[in-house]
Design a protein around this nucleic acid. Structure first.
Length: 803
DNA sequence: AGCACGCCGACT
DNA sequence: GTCGGCGTGCTC
């Protein structure tokens, strides 16, 4: 029997199945979807069996060494999905399979040197003999470090030394030692009575098991009975007890009790929204729904009850949520409703923890997965629904290969399972809303907040005006006044600082010189804790200069506003306010995110100050004021979606206020109060924004009117980059239809990263069925060059970031 | 991706 | 004459 195997070598030439002989003893064992260890050239590597066949056209077949799994890690659906993913994202098969699995299943390779069997230690040169005196094998690294590599290689050609390649699992299954008695109570009593008085401790252990004749964790037993492991070992030797390793899960939520919650009564609107979903579930029909509901309109309850119905039908559900809003609050809602039917997958978990959550899914021990982007690949086999909350979030798009969008994968999987998809948002992506308008998706609307609470009132403050009237602080008078008011009323405020596109850079106040990265054409970001400036792209780090390198002025310092700075300023203007700051610095430690939010919820602070991460999901009754310190920082990014992103963010943040009994107020500070995305965020009118934005996208031929694909070329040599990009552009212009637009070559918005120049070519098209093939030819042509001369070509179909 | 094979310059 | 540079091509 032959296994077709995709090997773990992400390269153009190896991006196809290789045939392997299945040895006799493994014929019943090896199945499609399993990971196997195979010889590949001189190495041994990991591979995925994609199918099993009778024969092969290749005549020098080698054998599979061994399987790495007891059961397939990829089911037939996921194997097929891998093909689809490869096709859509122009990525390698192996990368597609790897992205669908937890990182723990990615192989680790070890290279070692070993003395051959026929070789005696005296046959080796003296320098090497030391190495093998006390050990059989020497790691490759050690050989390199001790500079013995060339000597060893010489011996290897003589046949005295062998090079071994080993495939290792990245993560071990966590195991705990358990013990249990082999005998029944009567026999145990017999043994007990036969024990001499010296064996008092053994007696204690036996009595424990007489009382409780079942398996117990060794460590626990030792601590309960206060005996040593030697005691237990003695009994094991006598054949009274047995030890065995029991596999356990690393459960990040182990000691937590989740209060059981019941389904809430739906409002009329919620009921109207859920009905078509339920119908779709009952009819096992594939539909895509857009659940378009204003902030605080109770979308989550609709999700929960849809999932409830899926569980009643014995099916499974995937619930996606952006990493940033995968808060403990959210987890609590799911675990509270569905108990241990829920697995949670997010980046805060260790590799081992993720692996364990994944195995719970694989073994059908859970029915619901709550997770960020990659949870879309949860290995369910009987999927009943996929829900994507905050579907407009850009984090659903993976920015490395394979560059997939979770929304597309969701729809593909749902099509396979003939089940519904719910895309939920108060501010849908323009593409999504357009499809809903066209009837491709079914639009379900929640226009009212729960408890009939009105949306918060929004005021836009012109910061230029403030400046003109002599207020140079970062708080407008209006915001300050409201802040004071909330302090007096003992109500809470959320202050939002949009840092994206506004990181603190170092600038000379005399000549305007900005410190840039010497290798990448972007400004360095100032980090206060070590007084250093760092490049976001290549990691270059340097001290803040004391004098301007251009004009030698001493007035060189950092600009821009960080959360720390705001916190300081707050301390000056409102010294009595208690502030909790949430940003990457204060939430990097595990669990600190949760702790800070808990503190805020419990009223231990008056003001919650933070970045993106507080824009979503916060749902605390006492928040009545939201302040946005600078609304327009991301408006000037070189991205056609910047207005959309600004509107979405402002609307999301505003939605944090007044979600319960108390009414909410929002203050948005801006330097461009006339910009439509800010004006309309003020009225919180998405429909209006949609129309306005569509009117702008249309003449510029941007999505949703056109699809786009982006090709980025990079190389150390600027001329090379330009000429290759030019060639690609011409090639595409010749190949694509007249209706399509090929733009370029142009310098990328980040024209240089790590000393590599970057040029790009943007394709806009409405219908281009052969585009995938054409782009693949471009990749085939130039990816070969990558090895020989360092040219890199990357293609992003439907990019979210044009950089 | 690794690695071997193979063909040309600068050294014992 | 050989050691070693990296261009080329293969891995079931």
């Amino acid at each position: 029997m032959i296994a077709k195997v995709i090997v773990d070598v992400p390269a153009k030439q190896t991006d196809r199945a290789f045939d392997y002989l299945i040895p006799e003893r493994l014929i019943e064992v090896i199945q499609p979807g399993m990971r196997v260890i195979v010889p590949f050239g001189p190495r041994t590597i990991q591979g995925f069996v994609i199918s099993i066949e009778e024969e092969s056209s290749f005549d020098k077949l080698r054998e599979i060494v061994e399987p790495m799994d007891l059961y397939p890690v990829l089911n037939p659906e996921l194997l097929k999905l891998g093909d689809w993913l490869t096709d859509k994202t122009l990525s390698y098969k192996i990368s597609a399979y790897q992205v669908m699995l937890p990182a723990a299943l990615k192989a680790k390779y070890i290279k070692k040197l070993k003395m051959s069997k026929q070789c005696q230690i005296n046959d080796l040169p003296l320098d090497i003999q030391d190495l093998f005196i006390n050990q059989q094998e020497v790691s490759w690294e050690q050989a390199v470090n001790e500079g013995l590599l060339s000597l060893l290689q010489k011996e290897a050609t003589k046949g005295n030394i062998e090079v071994i390649y080993e495939v290792k699992e990245r993560v071990k299954k966590k195991k705990l030692k358990h013990v249990y008695p082999l005998l029944n109570n009567e026999e145990l009593m017999g043994i007990r009575d036969a024990l001499t008085s010296q064996a008092a401790k053994q007696k204690v252990v036996i009595e424990y098991f007489i009382d409780k004749n079942e398996s117990v964790e060794l460590r626990e037993l030792l601590s309960i009975l206060n005996v040593s492991s030697a005691t237990v070992k003695g009994l094991v030797q006598k054949g009274v007890l047995v030890e065995k390793d029991m596999e356990v899960y690393r459960d990040p939520y182990l000691d937590r009790i989740f209060e059981k919650t019941q389904a809430l009564r739906l409002t009329d609107e919620q009921f109207a929204a859920i009905t078509p979903v339920i119908n779709s579930i009952e009819e096992e029909k594939h539909n895509v729904f857009l659940l378009y509901g204003v902030t605080g309109s109770g979308k989550t309850e609709v999700y929960l009850q849809s999932i409830q119905r899926i569980l009643e039908k014995g099916k499974e559900a995937i619930f996606l949520i952006p990493e940033i809003s995968l808060t403990p609050q959210m987890v609590k809602r799911f675990k509270g409703r569905f108990g241990n039917e829920v697995a949670v997958l997010h980046s805060g978990l260790s590799i081992g923890e993720k692996y364990d959550e994944w195995r719970k899914i694989q073994r059908k021990e859970v029915k619901v997965v709550v997770g960020a982007r990659s949870a879309i690949f949860a290995p369910f086999e009987n999927l009943g629904i996929i829900i994507i909350d905050e579907e407009h979030e850009t984090s659903y798009k993976q920015e490395e290969n394979p560059r997939y969008h979770a929304r597309d994968v969701a729809i593909e999987r749902a099509r396979f399972h003939q089940c519904p998809v719910i895309l939920g948002s108060a501010t849908p992506a323009l593409e999504t809303f357009a499809r809903a308008q066209k009837g491709v998706y079914i639009k379900l609307t929640l226009s009212k907040r729960m408890n009939n609470q009105s949306l918060p009132t929004v005021q836009i403050v012109d910061m230029r005006e403030e400046l003109r009237e002599g207020n140079r602080s970062m708080f407008s008078r209006k915001l300050l006044e409201k802040l004071q008011d909330r302090l007096e009323k003992k109500q809470q405020t959320v202050l939002f600082l949009n840092k994206r596109g506004h990181s603190s850079f170092v600038m000379c106040r005399d000549c305007g010189y900005v410190v840039n990265c010497p290798q990448c054409d972007i400004s360095l970001t100032y980090h206060r804790y070590n007084e250093q400036m760092k490049c976001h792209y290549c990691g270059y780090e340097t001290h803040v200069p004391t004098h301007c390198p251009e004009c030698n002025s001493e007035h060189i310092r950092y600009f821009g506003t960080g959360t720390q700075k705001v916190e300081e300023e707050l301390g000056k203007v409102l010294p009595e306010a208690r502030v909790i700051r949430m940003d990457v610095d204060t939430t990097s430690r595990k669990g600190s995110h949760e702790r800070l939010l808990n503190d805020f919820q419990e009223g231990k602070a008056d003001i919650l100050l933070g970045t993106q991460m507080i824009a979503k999901g916060l749902d605390f009754p006492n928040i009545t004021l939201v302040g946005v310190l600078s609304a327009d920082t991301m408006l000037h990014l070189p991205d056609f979606r910047s207005s959309e992103k600004t509107f979405q963010l402002l609307t999301q943040v505003s939605g944090r206020a007044g979600r319960h009994e108390l009414e909410g107020e929002v203050i948005i500070q801006t330097y461009t109060p006339e910009h439509y995305s800010i004006v309309l965020a003020g009225t919180q009118n998405y429909d209006h924004f949609y129309e306005q934005e569509m009117m702008i996208r249309k003449p510029h031929q941007y999505p949703p009117f056109y699809y786009i694909s982006l090709i980025t070329v990079s190389h150390e040599n600027l001329m090379k980059v330009v000429s290759v990009t030019e060639k690609i552009t011409h090639f595409l212009q010749a190949r694509l239809s007249k209706e399509s637009i090929v733009l370029g070559p142009v310098a990328s918005p980040i024209p240089r990263i790590n000393n590599r120049y970057r040029y790009q070519c943007l394709i806009k098209y409405k219908r281009e069925p052969e585009l995938g093939k054409t782009l693949k030819t471009v990749l085939d042509q130039y990816q070969q060059e990558a090895v020989s001369n360092g040219l890199q070509v990357s293609i992003d179909v439907n990019p979210y970031i044009l950089m």
